[in-house]
Amino acid sequence: MNKTLRFPPVLSGVLIGLSMVAAFVFAGRGIGASGFLTRLIATAQFELFPGLTEKSAYFARYFETARHPLDSWLTYFAVGLVLGSLVTALISKSWKLEVLRGDRITSSGRLLLALLGGGFIGFAARLARGCTSGQALVGGAELLVGAWAFMVCIFIGGYATAYFVRKQWI
């Protein structure tokens, strides 16, 4: 297998930062991923169970205006994100249908933990009003106290839990 094309951390970080600066300059707003994903699943639930979704005090606001919840800057941004990753993976020949896992865990074990971790993050991203991109990176750049507190807490939560899932990674 080819060695995947990699940038060293500072250089990759600067690229991510430039994407943020572009969003500030063009749109006057921050980047974000979880907002789009929440709108996506809220829309899916609305299509299936419109009554339930309209009753939800949290999701209802997406459907109150004439504008479709996915007709949003975040949706276009997410499309670009997926395309950028896809194109880079194809060029560096690292596109592959697979389950990435450590040496000491089975594929199904890894998938189960991915599902569980995703559940935590789906909930936490709503409670914190953003995820790594929208809350931590953008807020961090904007010098917001909340964003830096969020990041410190991410690493507290992560380091505190790391021991219990160590077989998954190392």
């Binding site: 990753s85 995703g118 935590f120 992560g158 380091y159």
Partner: peptide
Amino acid sequence: GGILFGIGMVIGGYCPGTALASIATG
């Protein structure tokens, strides 16, 4: 939210943005 997010990150291995990017690579 940050503490729950960190727990989710070490269990799941992704955050929303990296998960989207990773799905795009299969």
